[in-house]
Amino acid sequence: MTALGVVFRPQLPPERLREMALAADRAGLDELWLWEDCFLESGIATASAALAWTERLRVGVGLLPAPLRNVALTSMEAATLHRLFPGRVLLGVGHGVQDWMAQVGARVDSPVTLLREYLEAMRALLAGERVTSRGRYVELDQVALDWPPLTPPPVLAGAIGPRSLRLTGESADGTVVDARVAPEGLRKACALVEEGRRTAGRTAAPHPVTVYVHAATGPGAAARVAAEIRREGHDPSAGLGAVGSAAEIAEAVLALADAGADTVVLQPTADEPDPEGFVRFAGEQVRPLVSG
């Protein structure tokens, strides 16, 4: 069954998160996703709050920028969340937006190399291993977590380019794809992930794919989504959005599921006039059509 989520966009102030999370939990939504975009809001702090406020909702962070975060710190935070809220945490790491990484002096020459080293170290630490690494970017000397998760959790990774998509198949436990892909683009992305899995001999284990999609309902929905897609430098006519009634949005979600998505995350526009209402709409009206 395809899981359905909604993004709490960090363009909203942090104090709006509680009502959004409670609305998602009460409406029966499967997942609430958060972003750690510079220089808006912390992914880990918001995730811990959303998890504490809710009872059944899974909370994802997509993505934590690897260049900005030491892998030992990220693994400590991830382990703590998984111990506190077992089965409800989904964390993904990625390259980070390169301009932002340059702003804080964290940009690296080879983001793919960093992400590969990061994923290998983080997965090992969360599995309870003692890790020594002498990589190009990741250096650890006999590091082990005192309180690793009771069961090794999945570590997700974000990707859009071919090399990075193959890397997620090789070194991550799941892939997060942003909203710039239509169903056919997602199908191609999933094929690249599978190439990486075959290369690494990891095809026996599950590898869930999460994809974002621009979404809006109500008056002016199509215009708002089209404007957002243009702002991101993409063509609004390329089939990137999910717009309209619950049935129309569910149809777009199912098209992405057919292309390989295990989870589809509705990404409201930055100017969504009623974020809490959109969450309720997604959980109460769209989700039954997707799961049914």
Score class of each variant (00 low, 15 high):
Val6His: 00
Phe8Val: 10
Gln11Phe: 07
Pro14Ala: 13
Pro14Trp: 08
Glu15Asp: 14
Arg16Glu: 08
Leu17Glu: 04
Glu19Arg: 05
Leu22Glu: 15
Asp25Gly: 05
Arg26Met: 05
Ala27Trp: 04
Gly28His: 01
Leu32Cys: 07
Asp37Met: 05
Glu41Ser: 11
Thr46Leu: 14
Ala50Cys: 09
Trp53Ile: 05
Gly62Leu: 15
Pro65Leu: 11
Ala66Tyr: 12
Leu68Met: 10
Val71Leu: 06
Ala72Ile: 03
Glu77Phe: 03
Thr80Glu: 05
Arg83Lys: 11
Pro86Cys: 08
Leu90Gln: 12
Leu91Glu: 02
Leu91His: 01
Gly105Gln: 09
Leu115Ala: 07
Leu115Lys: 02
Arg116Val: 09
Met122His: 05
Arg123Val: 07
Ala124Val: 01
Leu125Trp: 06
Gly128Cys: 10
Gly128Val: 12
Val131Cys: 04
Arg134Asp: 14
Gly135Asp: 04
Arg136Val: 14
Val138Tyr: 02
Glu139Leu: 06
Ala144Arg: 12
Leu145Phe: 09
Thr151Glu: 15
Thr151Ala: 15
Gly161Leu: 10
Thr175Glu: 04
Asp178Thr: 06
Ala179Met: 03
Glu184Ile: 04
Gly185Met: 06
Cys190Lys: 06
Ala191Glu: 15
Val193Asn: 11
Val193Asp: 13
Gly196Thr: 10
Thr199Pro: 00
Thr199Gly: 05
Arg202Gly: 13
Ala205Ile: 03
His207Trp: 09
Val209Thr: 14
Val213Leu: 00
Ala215Glu: 02
Ala215His: 01
Ala215Asn: 02
Ala221Asp: 06
Ala221Tyr: 03
Ala222Pro: 02
Ala223Lys: 12
Arg230Asp: 08
Arg230Lys: 12
Glu232Leu: 12
Gly233His: 08
Asp235His: 08
Pro236Asn: 07
Gly239Trp: 00
Ala246Cys: 12
Ala246Asp: 11
Ala247Gly: 06
Ala247Lys: 02
Glu251Val: 01
Glu251Cys: 03
Ala259Val: 03
Gly260Ala: 08
Thr263Gln: 03
Val264Leu: 01
Leu266Cys: 03
Thr269Pro: 04
Thr269Ser: 02
Gly277Asp: 01
Phe278Ser: 05
Phe281Val: 15
Ala282Pro: 14
